[in-house]
Design a protein around this nucleic acid. Structure first.
Lengths: 276, 276
DNA sequence: GCTATCACTTTATACCTTAAAGAAATCAGG
DNA sequence: CCTGATTTCTTTAAGGTATAAAGTGATAGC
């Protein structure tokens, strides 16, 4: 069968993603019974990525977790990249999908974004998986469906709604990335965040004694408390990222509300009749 | 000298980033004259990343571009990760930094975001470099300084302004990522975007014939033209990303304007007196 | 001119993905 | 029951990565 260069068999990939029966389902014939399954492999891979980060995700590591060699996985999966696609879609399955369609759309959008944010922080490796690759898996469509359902009461026109969803997605991913990096940096470098920050700030004043003159606006921000840590217990970057998420979400929803009012300026525009 | 585990010498890193004289400047002593320089190496590395993508950035590739082996670079740079930090900060140097402080802050913020967006698309590899890692390099501070200067006329309080900057940064990075991936996918897989999209859509209807029932909101979106390509010449994903950038920016700036009005509801709030 | 020092290369180690071949297990048909 | 095809999984190997360690040769100062 013809296969695209460097891409593997796209049909097999899609069949696997959607768990179509043709793709390695119940098999009867000669040869030993399969001791693994695609699901088991994907779960093990997700566990590795969750626990040790994307950098530690090797075929061997996944295989060992299942008591096999790394090569054993190639019986079930065409390539590591396909495995990552499967991990991605599988992980998305745990996202909530029900948001009260009769409630205020702002509230629904807020909890949707917060859920997504928390989800990314449970699986920080997702943020390292291609920013925008669309694998067209079932759970990716569930997520998109949920997002559209949540935002439909804004009354925005379809294309505009699509852009709003994209904007929200990018925003959530971006802010979650900051925290994810904060968490994985100590693991990777062996230096705690506090220690890193402390050392680097000290070195900064050493290497740029004229900081305030060179970066007046930053200095202004700093003087006004722009970088101050209010809660001493959480690392600075993490706290800032949390605040950025909350504040940025408000900005976005305010903007969305303005757009919604422009689109349907009638009072009660947030409660448009639901569509099938 | 004590060195952090796995981190190399942080002092040397900072000195290099800020090009402090202590870090390998003009040297006099025995031994052959250095044939390379940190700047030459960083420039070559950026060229490799620009032309062939981050995946092709190996020490060997950079060395060969300079007529050396890969190992030669280790005379100038502690590790590949340090080289990437240097590339990151060096690339940021080409960002514009002057935005008319007397103009409408909305206009300034728009062009700032657009410039940043174009910049990321000129160097798509930047989007693959740690989403949030702060290397505390000089040009990173220039960028931050610019952003703060652009948004200061909103009159927002310092911490809020910091969050607004973060939100805008994440948004721009996110939308740019989509396009960047679109561009590099054909290179990586050998399949053009049109071909990929065409094949995958065909397979999608094959593998999920009940698509419309399973994902009613997505189907609704599609029926209303949410995925239609208006300009046939540019690939769909790229066009959509461009639209998302433009529309999302409006959303964000609308939200920002609302916040600014809450902070300083006086008329003409966009023209607060500038601070030193 | 000797020697310490530095730039750079070579070699080696330990990873990675994955192609290809081999070993063992299983079922179907004779 | 036995044979052969088929399949799982392991082993081996090729070609890639970063980088530690050792070797080579040029240079400047004593």
């Amino acid at each position: 069968m013809a296969v695209f260069a460097g891409q593997g068999d796209a049909r097999r990939s899609m069949a696997l993603l959607w768990r179509a029966p043709e793709a390695g389902g119940a098999r009867t014939g000669p040869g030993p019974k399969p001791g693994l399954s695609v699901d088991a492999i994907v779960d093990a891979a997700i566990a590795v990525a969750d626990e040790e980060g994307m950098a530690a995700l090797s075929m061997r590591a996944v295989g060992e977790r299942l008591g096999r060699t790394g090569m054993a996985l190639y019986t079930y999966v065409q390539s590591k990249s396909e495995l990552v696609d499967l991990m991605y879609d599988q992980a998305l399955a745990e996202l909530p999908a029900d948001y009260d369609p009769d409630a205020d759309w702002r509230a629904a959008a807020s909890s949707w974004a917060a859920d997504l944010w928390a989800f990314y922080l449970r699986h920080p490796w997702l943020l390292q998986v291609s920013q925008a690759r669309s694998v067209l898996g079932p759970n990716e469509y569930v997520m998109l469906d949920t997002a559209v359902r949540v935002l439909r009461p804004t009354g925005l026109e379809a294309r505009m709604l699509r852009r709003a969803v994209g904007t929200l997605l990018h925003f959530v991913r971006g802010t979650a990335s900051t925290i994810a990096e904060t968490w994985q940096a100590p693991k990777a470098t062996g230096v705690s965040e506090e220690e890193w920050w402390y050392t680097r700030s000290a070195l900064l004043t050493e290497v740029a004694p004229d900081f305030a003159e060179r970066f007046p606006a930053v200095a202004w921000l700093e003087a006004r408390g722009g970088f101050r840590n209010e809660d001493e217990t959480t690392p600075y970057l993490e706290q800032e990222a949390r605040e950025t998420f909350e504040a940025g979400l408000v900005l976005l929803l305010d903007g969305l509300e303005a757009a919604a009012n422009r689109a349907a300026p009638a009072p009660g525009a947030g409660r448009l009749p639901r569509l099938p």
